[in-house]
Amino acid sequence: MPFFLRRIATLSSSIFAIVTFNFFLFHIIPGDPIRLIARTQRLNTEAIAKLRTSFGLDGSLLSQYFRYLSKLLHGDLGYSFFYKENVSGIVGRALGNTFLLLTASTLIVVTCGIAIGVFAGSRQGKKSDTATVVSSLILWSMPTFWVGMLLVFTFGVWVGGLPISGISTANALYSNWFQYAMDIGQHLILPTVTLAIVDIAFFIIITRTALIEVMSEDYMLTARGKGLSRRTIVWRHGFRNAMLPVLTASALYISALVGGAIQVEVVFSWPGMGLLMYNAVLARDYSVLEASFLLTTVAVLVANFAADMLYRVLDPRVAVSK
Protein backbone atom coordinates (compact mmCIF):
# COMPACT_ATOMS: atom_id res chain seq x y z
CA MET A 1 0.00 0.00 0.00
CA PRO A 2 2.09 2.92 -1.29
CA PHE A 3 -0.22 5.53 0.20
CA PHE A 4 0.20 4.11 3.68
CA LEU A 5 3.96 4.21 3.28
CA ARG A 6 3.83 7.80 2.10
CA ARG A 7 1.82 8.81 5.15
CA ILE A 8 4.28 6.95 7.42
CA ALA A 9 7.09 8.92 5.78
CA THR A 10 5.27 12.21 6.43
CA LEU A 11 4.67 11.19 10.02
CA SER A 12 8.32 10.31 10.56
CA SER A 13 9.50 13.57 9.02
CA SER A 14 7.09 15.50 11.27
CA ILE A 15 8.41 13.66 14.33
CA PHE A 16 11.95 14.33 13.21
CA ALA A 17 11.11 18.01 12.77
CA ILE A 18 9.61 18.25 16.23
CA VAL A 19 12.62 16.52 17.78
CA THR A 20 14.98 18.96 16.07
CA PHE A 21 12.77 21.91 16.97
CA ASN A 22 12.73 20.66 20.54
CA PHE A 23 16.51 20.44 20.65
CA PHE A 24 16.99 24.00 19.49
CA LEU A 25 14.21 25.31 21.69
CA PHE A 26 15.57 23.92 24.92
CA HIS A 27 19.30 23.72 24.26
CA ILE A 28 20.07 26.90 22.43
CA ILE A 29 17.51 29.58 23.15
CA PRO A 30 17.33 29.62 26.95
CA GLY A 31 21.07 30.16 27.00
CA ASP A 32 22.60 27.98 29.60
CA PRO A 33 20.37 25.89 31.81
CA ILE A 34 23.39 25.28 34.00
CA ARG A 35 23.49 28.92 34.92
CA LEU A 36 19.87 28.69 35.98
CA ILE A 37 20.73 25.84 38.31
CA ALA A 38 23.90 27.57 39.44
CA ARG A 39 21.85 30.56 40.41
CA THR A 40 19.85 28.57 42.91
CA GLN A 41 22.57 26.19 44.08
CA ARG A 42 26.14 27.10 44.80
CA LEU A 43 28.32 25.03 42.49
CA ASN A 44 32.04 24.87 41.90
CA THR A 45 33.61 24.75 38.45
CA GLU A 46 34.09 21.01 38.61
CA ALA A 47 30.42 20.43 39.41
CA ILE A 48 29.40 22.75 36.58
CA ALA A 49 31.54 20.84 34.11
CA LYS A 50 30.00 17.59 35.30
CA LEU A 51 26.52 19.04 34.91
CA ARG A 52 27.44 20.25 31.43
CA THR A 53 28.31 16.72 30.40
CA SER A 54 25.16 15.30 31.90
CA PHE A 55 23.11 17.89 30.01
CA GLY A 56 24.98 17.11 26.82
CA LEU A 57 26.13 20.71 26.57
CA ASP A 58 29.83 20.14 25.87
CA GLY A 59 31.34 19.99 22.42
CA SER A 60 30.14 21.60 19.21
CA LEU A 61 26.48 22.22 18.46
CA LEU A 62 26.39 19.47 15.85
CA SER A 63 27.93 16.89 18.13
CA GLN A 64 25.52 17.96 20.87
CA TYR A 65 22.67 17.42 18.46
CA PHE A 66 23.78 13.94 17.44
CA ARG A 67 24.39 12.97 21.04
CA TYR A 68 20.90 14.19 21.83
CA LEU A 69 19.43 12.07 19.03
CA SER A 70 21.25 8.93 20.10
CA LYS A 71 20.18 9.43 23.73
CA LEU A 72 16.56 9.82 22.60
CA LEU A 73 16.79 6.61 20.58
CA HIS A 74 17.96 4.82 23.71
CA GLY A 75 15.01 6.18 25.66
CA ASP A 76 17.18 8.49 27.72
CA LEU A 77 15.27 11.71 28.37
CA GLY A 78 17.77 13.26 30.77
CA TYR A 79 17.92 13.76 34.51
CA SER A 80 15.70 15.97 36.66
CA PHE A 81 17.47 17.88 39.39
CA PHE A 82 14.11 18.77 40.86
CA TYR A 83 12.96 15.18 41.30
CA LYS A 84 16.47 13.78 41.55
CA GLU A 85 15.45 11.04 39.18
CA ASN A 86 15.68 10.02 35.53
CA VAL A 87 13.08 11.87 33.48
CA SER A 88 11.97 8.76 31.59
CA GLY A 89 10.76 7.17 34.82
CA ILE A 90 8.81 10.27 35.90
CA VAL A 91 7.26 10.73 32.49
CA GLY A 92 6.44 7.03 32.15
CA ARG A 93 4.26 7.10 35.28
CA ALA A 94 2.49 10.29 34.24
CA LEU A 95 1.81 9.13 30.69
CA GLY A 96 -0.48 6.29 31.78
CA ASN A 97 -2.54 8.55 34.04
CA THR A 98 -3.06 11.11 31.30
CA PHE A 99 -4.01 8.36 28.88
CA LEU A 100 -6.66 7.12 31.31
CA LEU A 101 -8.13 10.63 31.64
CA LEU A 102 -8.09 11.28 27.89
CA THR A 103 -9.67 7.93 27.05
CA ALA A 104 -12.47 8.37 29.57
CA SER A 105 -13.40 11.85 28.43
CA THR A 106 -12.99 11.11 24.72
CA LEU A 107 -15.45 8.23 25.09
CA ILE A 108 -18.01 10.62 26.59
CA VAL A 109 -17.28 13.42 24.14
CA VAL A 110 -17.46 11.28 21.02
CA THR A 111 -20.60 9.32 21.91
CA CYS A 112 -22.61 12.13 23.50
CA GLY A 113 -21.21 14.82 21.20
CA ILE A 114 -22.16 12.95 18.04
CA ALA A 115 -25.58 11.97 19.39
CA ILE A 116 -26.45 15.54 20.42
CA GLY A 117 -24.94 17.00 17.24
CA VAL A 118 -27.00 14.68 15.04
CA PHE A 119 -30.09 15.41 17.15
CA ALA A 120 -29.66 19.16 16.70
CA GLY A 121 -28.62 18.98 13.05
CA SER A 122 -31.62 16.90 12.03
CA ARG A 123 -33.94 19.45 13.68
CA GLN A 124 -32.32 22.50 12.14
CA GLY A 125 -34.00 25.77 13.01
CA LYS A 126 -36.31 24.27 15.63
CA LYS A 127 -36.25 25.40 19.24
CA SER A 128 -34.38 22.32 20.48
CA ASP A 129 -31.69 22.96 17.85
CA THR A 130 -31.27 26.62 18.74
CA ALA A 131 -31.07 25.77 22.44
CA THR A 132 -28.37 23.18 21.73
CA VAL A 133 -26.34 25.62 19.63
CA VAL A 134 -26.56 28.43 22.16
CA SER A 135 -25.60 26.22 25.10
CA SER A 136 -22.75 24.70 23.10
CA LEU A 137 -21.38 28.14 22.28
CA ILE A 138 -21.59 29.11 25.95
CA LEU A 139 -19.80 25.92 27.05
CA TRP A 140 -17.20 26.45 24.37
CA SER A 141 -16.51 29.97 25.61
CA MET A 142 -15.66 28.79 29.12
CA PRO A 143 -12.01 28.28 30.01
CA THR A 144 -11.59 24.58 30.85
CA PHE A 145 -9.66 25.28 34.04
CA TRP A 146 -12.42 27.57 35.28
CA VAL A 147 -15.06 24.87 34.74
CA GLY A 148 -12.79 22.65 36.83
CA MET A 149 -12.56 25.30 39.54
CA LEU A 150 -16.35 25.60 39.61
CA LEU A 151 -16.68 21.83 40.01
CA VAL A 152 -14.03 21.76 42.73
CA PHE A 153 -15.93 24.50 44.54
CA THR A 154 -19.27 22.71 44.08
CA PHE A 155 -18.20 19.18 45.00
CA GLY A 156 -15.33 19.92 47.31
CA VAL A 157 -16.53 22.93 49.29
CA TRP A 158 -20.17 23.65 48.70
CA VAL A 159 -22.08 20.35 48.29
CA GLY A 160 -19.27 17.85 48.67
CA GLY A 161 -19.49 14.17 47.83
CA LEU A 162 -16.77 13.61 45.25
CA PRO A 163 -12.99 13.56 45.55
CA ILE A 164 -11.51 16.70 44.03
CA SER A 165 -7.79 16.03 44.09
CA GLY A 166 -5.31 13.35 43.04
CA ILE A 167 -5.84 9.92 41.51
CA SER A 168 -6.50 7.94 44.69
CA THR A 169 -7.17 8.48 48.38
CA ALA A 170 -3.95 9.21 50.23
CA ASN A 171 -2.69 6.44 52.56
CA ALA A 172 -5.71 4.28 51.78
CA LEU A 173 -5.47 0.53 52.33
CA TYR A 174 -7.26 -1.60 49.80
CA SER A 175 -8.42 -5.13 50.51
CA ASN A 176 -8.60 -6.02 46.82
CA TRP A 177 -8.03 -4.70 43.33
CA PHE A 178 -11.67 -3.90 42.83
CA GLN A 179 -11.66 -1.43 45.71
CA TYR A 180 -8.55 0.20 44.29
CA ALA A 181 -10.15 0.52 40.87
CA MET A 182 -13.30 1.99 42.40
CA ASP A 183 -11.25 4.56 44.25
CA ILE A 184 -9.47 5.63 41.09
CA GLY A 185 -12.79 5.64 39.25
CA GLN A 186 -14.26 8.04 41.79
CA HIS A 187 -11.27 10.33 41.50
CA LEU A 188 -11.61 10.16 37.73
CA ILE A 189 -15.21 11.46 37.64
CA LEU A 190 -14.73 15.20 38.07
CA PRO A 191 -11.63 15.61 35.85
CA THR A 192 -13.33 13.60 33.12
CA VAL A 193 -16.56 15.57 33.33
CA THR A 194 -14.68 18.89 33.25
CA LEU A 195 -12.72 17.92 30.19
CA ALA A 196 -15.80 16.49 28.49
CA ILE A 197 -18.05 19.51 29.17
CA VAL A 198 -15.94 21.95 27.17
CA ASP A 199 -14.82 19.63 24.40
CA ILE A 200 -18.27 18.19 23.84
CA ALA A 201 -19.44 21.63 22.73
CA PHE A 202 -16.82 21.62 19.97
CA PHE A 203 -17.96 18.19 18.84
CA ILE A 204 -21.64 19.09 18.87
CA ILE A 205 -21.13 22.17 16.71
CA ILE A 206 -18.93 20.39 14.18
CA THR A 207 -21.25 17.38 13.94
CA ARG A 208 -24.32 19.56 13.61
CA THR A 209 -22.85 21.70 10.82
CA ALA A 210 -21.67 18.60 8.97
CA LEU A 211 -25.04 16.90 9.25
CA ILE A 212 -26.92 19.99 8.07
CA GLU A 213 -24.69 20.14 5.03
CA VAL A 214 -25.29 16.43 4.37
CA MET A 215 -29.06 16.69 4.92
CA SER A 216 -29.35 18.96 1.89
CA GLU A 217 -27.56 16.47 -0.37
CA ASP A 218 -29.56 14.80 -3.14
CA TYR A 219 -29.01 11.29 -1.79
CA MET A 220 -30.89 12.24 1.35
CA LEU A 221 -33.92 12.99 -0.84
CA THR A 222 -33.42 9.60 -2.47
CA ALA A 223 -33.45 8.00 0.97
CA ARG A 224 -36.69 9.83 1.79
CA GLY A 225 -38.16 8.75 -1.52
CA LYS A 226 -37.38 5.14 -0.66
CA GLY A 227 -39.86 5.38 2.19
CA LEU A 228 -37.27 5.04 4.94
CA SER A 229 -38.11 6.25 8.40
CA ARG A 230 -36.64 9.53 9.56
CA ARG A 231 -34.30 7.74 11.93
CA THR A 232 -32.99 5.41 9.22
CA ILE A 233 -32.47 8.34 6.86
CA VAL A 234 -30.46 10.32 9.40
CA TRP A 235 -28.42 7.48 10.86
CA ARG A 236 -27.88 5.15 7.91
CA HIS A 237 -27.47 7.73 5.16
CA GLY A 238 -26.62 11.01 6.86
CA PHE A 239 -24.45 9.93 9.74
CA ARG A 240 -21.56 8.25 7.97
CA ASN A 241 -21.27 11.03 5.41
CA ALA A 242 -21.38 13.65 8.15
CA MET A 243 -18.59 11.87 10.01
CA LEU A 244 -16.10 12.65 7.22
CA PRO A 245 -15.83 16.40 7.88
CA VAL A 246 -15.94 15.68 11.61
CA LEU A 247 -12.89 13.45 11.25
CA THR A 248 -11.16 16.15 9.25
CA ALA A 249 -11.68 18.53 12.15
CA SER A 250 -10.31 16.00 14.62
CA ALA A 251 -6.82 17.49 14.37
CA LEU A 252 -8.20 20.58 16.07
CA TYR A 253 -10.04 18.42 18.56
CA ILE A 254 -6.96 16.41 19.52
CA SER A 255 -5.01 19.61 20.06
CA ALA A 256 -7.84 21.08 22.15
CA LEU A 257 -8.13 17.85 24.13
CA VAL A 258 -4.46 17.87 25.08
CA GLY A 259 -4.68 21.54 26.04
CA GLY A 260 -7.75 20.83 28.13
CA ALA A 261 -6.14 17.85 29.83
CA ILE A 262 -3.22 19.99 30.98
CA GLN A 263 -5.59 22.47 32.63
CA VAL A 264 -7.76 19.78 34.20
CA GLU A 265 -4.77 17.97 35.65
CA VAL A 266 -3.57 21.19 37.23
CA VAL A 267 -6.92 21.96 38.81
CA PHE A 268 -7.53 18.42 40.11
CA SER A 269 -3.88 17.57 40.83
CA TRP A 270 -4.24 14.60 38.51
CA PRO A 271 -0.71 13.15 38.33
CA GLY A 272 -0.37 13.16 34.54
CA MET A 273 1.69 14.94 31.89
CA GLY A 274 -0.14 18.23 32.38
CA LEU A 275 0.53 18.44 36.10
CA LEU A 276 4.11 17.45 35.36
CA MET A 277 4.42 20.35 32.91
CA TYR A 278 2.81 22.76 35.35
CA ASN A 279 5.16 21.80 38.15
CA ALA A 280 8.09 21.90 35.76
CA VAL A 281 7.14 25.46 34.80
CA LEU A 282 6.90 26.52 38.44
CA ALA A 283 10.21 24.83 39.32
CA ARG A 284 11.84 25.80 36.00
CA ASP A 285 12.71 22.11 35.62
CA TYR A 286 13.64 22.29 31.93
CA SER A 287 14.52 18.63 31.43
CA VAL A 288 11.06 17.48 32.53
CA LEU A 289 9.36 20.29 30.60
CA GLU A 290 11.28 19.34 27.48
CA ALA A 291 10.49 15.65 27.74
CA SER A 292 6.80 16.17 28.45
CA PHE A 293 6.52 18.66 25.58
CA LEU A 294 8.23 16.23 23.20
CA LEU A 295 6.17 13.22 24.22
CA THR A 296 2.85 15.10 24.12
CA THR A 297 3.56 16.46 20.67
CA VAL A 298 4.64 13.10 19.27
CA ALA A 299 1.54 11.48 20.76
CA VAL A 300 -0.65 14.10 19.07
CA LEU A 301 1.11 13.56 15.74
CA VAL A 302 0.47 9.82 16.02
CA ALA A 303 -3.17 10.38 16.98
CA ASN A 304 -3.65 12.59 13.92
CA PHE A 305 -2.09 9.91 11.79
CA ALA A 306 -4.60 7.40 13.17
CA ALA A 307 -7.51 9.78 12.45
CA ASP A 308 -6.26 10.18 8.89
CA MET A 309 -6.16 6.40 8.45
CA LEU A 310 -9.69 6.08 9.81
CA TYR A 311 -10.82 8.62 7.22
CA ARG A 312 -9.49 6.36 4.45
CA VAL A 313 -11.53 3.49 5.84
CA LEU A 314 -14.74 5.52 6.03
CA ASP A 315 -14.56 7.23 2.66
CA PRO A 316 -14.36 4.77 -0.24
CA ARG A 317 -13.62 7.60 -2.68
CA VAL A 318 -10.25 8.43 -1.13
CA ALA A 319 -9.25 4.82 -0.62
CA VAL A 320 -9.35 4.11 -4.34
CA SER A 321 -8.29 7.34 -5.94
CA LYS A 322 -5.13 7.83 -3.89
Binding site: E217, D218, T222, R240, N241, L314
Partner: peptide, 24 residues
Protein backbone atom coordinates in the same frame (compact mmCIF):
# COMPACT_ATOMS: atom_id res chain seq x y z
CA UNK B 1 -46.69 8.06 2.61
CA UNK B 2 -43.73 5.92 3.61
CA UNK B 3 -45.73 2.81 2.74
CA UNK B 4 -46.39 4.17 -0.76
CA UNK B 5 -42.96 5.62 -1.50
CA UNK B 6 -40.83 3.32 -3.63
CA UNK B 7 -43.26 0.41 -3.13
CA UNK B 8 -45.85 2.11 -5.38
CA UNK B 9 -44.12 5.23 -6.66
CA UNK B 10 -40.38 5.41 -7.17
CA UNK B 11 -38.25 8.25 -8.49
CA UNK B 12 -35.23 8.35 -10.76
CA UNK B 13 -33.64 11.55 -9.58
CA UNK B 14 -31.88 14.16 -11.61
CA UNK B 15 -28.09 13.75 -11.48
CA UNK B 16 -27.34 10.18 -10.41
CA UNK B 17 -23.93 11.05 -8.95
CA UNK B 18 -25.45 13.15 -6.21
CA UNK B 19 -28.56 11.03 -5.82
CA UNK B 20 -26.52 7.97 -4.84
CA UNK B 21 -24.98 7.75 -1.40
CA UNK B 22 -21.19 7.98 -1.92
CA UNK B 23 -20.24 5.76 1.01
CA UNK B 24 -22.55 2.80 0.32
Amino acid sequence: LRAIRWKEISVIFQGALNALNPVQ
